[in-house]
Structure formats: structure tokens, C-alpha cells
């Protein structure tokens, strides 16, 4: 049996020489380091607002907040740095951290929603089980109580007083 030729494959393939150009166009941070500390700080504040909203919607933002705080430390380090290259490196690292946090927000909200659903299910199940337990206890407890009472005293002898 001959393998089938995929005639459309050639037209759908991106030529290799276009790839570096695409990377440079899609990721501007690759082209140049960030130099403006205030710009990164504003970005941190913007992502922080999104994080607050995500937390309000049930997301666990602890890790993300720690990373944003790390970004703030890097900004401060960059501001104290006189060497332009090291300053740019710190700011770029801070920018990338903030960008990663921003990208993770939707996932955090989804996870938070799932956790809230699970919690609600657990609470509802516990309430239903408690109610069922009460009903069963109400119906069967006298029978259980008296059977246990008799079992514990089965060796007893009755004497007329």
C-alpha cells in the first residue's frame, strides 16, 4: 500500500526564513529591554487590579501576589542601578514576571470557580447526610438502643424482690 501524499501540506507550511521575523514581531520584548521603570510599575498596578478582581471571583492569588511583589523589588533594584544594562535586565525580568502573572489570571479564576463548586457540593452533601442521619437516627435509634441494652444485660438474672 502506497502512502498518500498530502498535497495541501506545502501551502500550509510556514517558510523557515519567516519564523525569526514572526518571533520578532509577536514578541517585542525580545527586540529590546524595558528601560522605563514607571511604565513597568504602572503595568504592575494594572495587573494588581485584575488580581483583586480575580480574588473577588474566588481565585487563590497568593502565588501571583508574591510574584508581583518580586517584580516591585526588581523595579526598585533597577531604579537604584546606575549601569544601564543591568537596569534594563532587572526591568525586563520584572516585566516578564508581571506578564506571566497576567497570563495566569484566567486560569486562577477557573481554578477558584472549580474550588467553590467543590466546596458547595461538599457542604450540600454534608447537610443532606446530616439530615438523613437525623431521620434514620429518629426512626431506628430506639430499636438499636434496646437491642444493645438487652445484649449488654443478657447474662443478668431476674429475681423477684
Amino acid at each position: 500500500m502506497k502512502p498518500m501524499k498530502n498535497r495541501g501540506a506545502r501551502s500550509r507550511t510556514i517558510p523557515l526564513y519567516i519564523l525569526p521575523l514572526l518571533i520578532l514581531l509577536l514578541f517585542p520584548s525580545v527586540m529590546a529591554e524595558v528601560q522605563d521603570a514607571e511604565e513597568v510599575r504602572n503595568y504592575v498596578r494594572l495587573v494588581y487590579q485584575k488580581l483583586v478582581e480575580a480574588e473577588r471571583r474566588g481565585a487563590d492569588v497568593e502565588e501571583a501576589a508574591i510574584r508581583l511583589n518580586r517584580a516591585l523589588s526588581l523595579i526598585r533594584e533597577a531604579e537604584a542601578e546606575t549601569n544601564t544594562s543591568r537596569r534594563g535586565k532587572s526591568l525586563t525580568e520584572a516585566y516578564n514576571l508581571v506578564r506571566d502573572v497576567e497570563a495566569s489570571i484566567d486560569r486562577l479564576v477557573e481554578e477558584g470557580r472549580a474550588r467553590i463548586n467543590l466546596r458547595n457540593w461538599t457542604l450540600s452533601s454534608a447537610a443532606i447526610l446530616t439530615a438523613v442521619g437525623c431521620i434514620l437516627g429518629y426512626i431506628y435509634s430506639p430499636r438499636i438502643f434496646w437491642s444493645l441494652w438487652l445484649r449488654l444485660r443478657r447474662g443478668w438474672r431476674v429475681r423477684r424482690a
Partner: peptide, 21 residues
């Protein structure tokens, strides 16, 4: 006596349930 046993069990279950909730 059955009624008393029932009442005690029910009261215990209610108190435990309210506390847990």
C-alpha cells in the same frame, strides 16, 4: 421510653449539625 430516646438522639444530632455548619 422510645420517645425519650428519640428526643435525646435528635437533640444531639441537631447540636452537632449546627456546630459543624
Amino acid at each position: 421510653i422510645d420517645e425519650e430516646v428519640r428526643a435525646v438522639i435528635l437533640a444531639l444530632a441537631l447540636v452537632a449539625g449546627v456546630f459543624a455548619a
